[in-house]
Nucleic acid binder design. Structure first.
Lengths: 345, 345
DNA sequence: GAAACAGATGTAAGCGCTTTCAACGATGAG
DNA sequence: CTCATCGTTGAAAGCGCTTACATCTGTTTC
């Protein structure tokens, strides 16, 4: 490593052509595996490329063919399993479709719109999380020049959207808790913080009406651990009467359970707690967390797929795409432990 | 959405120039914020670009300036917090340096070397995890044409490497467990599965020699939950005598604790269990897991930084980079609960 | 008032690749 | 033997952008 011997060696399609004793057109042809090329030429080109350690310049190809063969993906951040799963699904499908993925994390960018615009510069289309805090104006502006798909945002008709089902599962979950005889349920999370939480709250409400009950106001806190812990303290102090907490995500539910038990409250006996997402910890905590499993990976894959359809202009099955979720009953809701086996991963 | 109204509108630097009544050179200049341009021209260009919804084509710029302004990153996959953290660190630093990141996940690619070569085509340099299963030959071949940095692999001198400290912390951790009076420790994980595990096992060994003890053979299983559970069953069956398990990662430790306790074994009383990584669940499980915290995010950031130095050919502080780790003592090792507060996140 | 200069702008030459089109040689049919 | 045909190949024209370099205008200086 004494000398920076590494850098991009300046071999181009010309060097290869020369070495192989053919024209650049032929080199291009064999490298693209495209049109007919004689076996002899093919071999000579391949050998030359090998010897020269030729690495094509994607930019040049992109320029010539006028597309990037890359999808952009904007996520808020990556903590927790949710975004990771989504990303895995997206990357995997994108790769299957021959697309690279260039990733951008919103967190920490001081000028998000600018960052997104820059991203748009090098991809054929981009997918972004509804929660990534991209200004609406930026979204529509982009959408004016490149295909955009929104993930887990509000279904809408002017832009492609891919979301997972919220309201129905939330209603089902809430009804289940009600079925355990609980009556003073509280929804934990701020319905105004985003479409997901809003819809889950709507399901919470719906379950109450269906049972002829009226639901209490939501406990509007952020979806982070610290806020859950603080809320648990309020409950422990007797400040807040409840026998079941329906949380907008698992992180909150987990924090609540942990602190509540530390404070001597029995879960689920004194207060049941249910979450949303089915993160790994949900299975490990005592009591195991009843929650809702989202097919997050599938969500990502669908987004990549949809985007690709738009980019290639192929058959565009329009309309918002909604992916179903399902309940995972464990014991934190009041079900007997071992009541049902965990579904396989 | 009736018509695919969306696609890449064909506005180029020429359209903008025409609209603004200036030359393309001027447009380029204001868009790059480069050379002096009169205030008047600047405004006209900006307005024109705005009206035309102009989105530059990164490929054209890349071709002209002869670099991509992008870093490639190859990870094995994304489950668990480790790779996510790494990725966040990498993306964040890369963004600070003005680089896009194009991500590739090794998992599921049938032809990895080909995929990596394709990636190399569109970035200025690439970072990859030592554990991503890239054939050595591919690495060196790539390294011949673009800067490469290896993350969490073996420190080496022919390629840049960024790793976190393993052996020393493992020794410290093991000594700590020994200090609790445990004597039949078992190391859980396969030292041959990669440099990380190998080095942790080396520390395990070192601690034993330092105490004048001889260590038992490692329990060679994969780092996944299922294997941990299976191992716990073996222990429960009395098949394996041990009073402390030093696990190669948290996932294993967690699975072990869970199953062991389900089986009636007390942790840490009957058998202590410690892990590595400090994943989120480590704090939630009962008993809270003693483990080693890796500055994973920093690892990613350093990789991005190092790569960028290589790419720009700037001052190349050569040599492998090793980032320190530190013990997080909780109660699964035998320390009294509440023994020490969790460090803040 | 002319010369010298500085700032702003335009002209044009690539950057490395794909792809159309024409040219070529070899082959088979008539 | 000639002509059409076919499979291969090469020449060359871009793709949209950056950036020397040349040009032009308006100042400043003596």
């Amino acid at each position: 490593m004494a000398t920076g011997a590494t850098q991009s060696n300046g071999t181009t399609i010309y060097s290869v052509a020369e070495r192989a004793g053919v024209s650049i057109a032929s080199v291009s042809r064999v490298l693209q595996g495209s049109t007919a090329v004689s076996e002899k030429t093919r071999k000579r080109v391949l050998d030359a490329a090998e010897e020269l350690k030729y690495v094509p310049l994607a930019a040049a190809r992109s320029l010539a063919v006028r597309h990037h063969e890359a999808h952009g993906l904007v996520l808020p951040e990556l903590s927790g399993p949710y975004y990771s799963e989504l990303l895995m699904g997206f990357e995997s499908r994108a790769a299957d479709l021959g697309q690279s993925v260039v990733l951008m994390l919103a967190e920490g960018k001081d000028n998000l719109p600018a960052a997104v615009r820059k991203l748009a510069t090098r991809v054929d289309g981009l997918a972004m999380l509804g929660s990534a805090a991209i200004p609406e104006s930026t979204v529509t502006a982009l959408h004016g020049s490149k295909p955009v798909v929104l993930i887990a945002g509000d279904p809408r008709t002017d832009v492609d959207t891919v979301t997972s089902e919220n309201t129905h599962s939330a209603e089902e979950l809430t009804s289940h808790v009600l079925g355990h005889g609980r009556r003073t349920l509280r929804f934990v999370g701020d319905p105004d913080s985003g479409p997901d939480v809003r819809d889950r709250y709507a399901g919470f409400l719906a379950a109450h009406s269906a049972a002829g009950l009226t639901a209490a106001e939501p406990l509007r806190i952020s979806l982070r651990e610290a806020d859950g812990t603080a809320l648990a303290d309020r409950i422990l102090s007797g400040d807040l009467a409840t026998d079941a907490l329906v949380c907008a995500n698992d992180e909150l539910a987990l924090a609540l359970i942990k602190r509540l038990r530390e404070g001597g409250t029995r879960v689920p006996d004194d207060v049941a707690v249910v979450g949303w997402d089915d993160v790994m910890t949900a299975r490990y905590i005592e009591p195991a967390l009843t929650t809702v499993r989202q097919p997050v990976r599938e969500l990502g894959a669908q987004a990549a797929e949809r985007l690709h359809q738009r980019v290639t202009g192929g058959s565009v099955e329009a309309g918002p795409l909604v992916i179903p979720t399902h309940l995972v009953l464990r014991s934190s809701c009041g079900c007997a432990p071992g009541h049902r086996p965990d579904p396989p991963d």
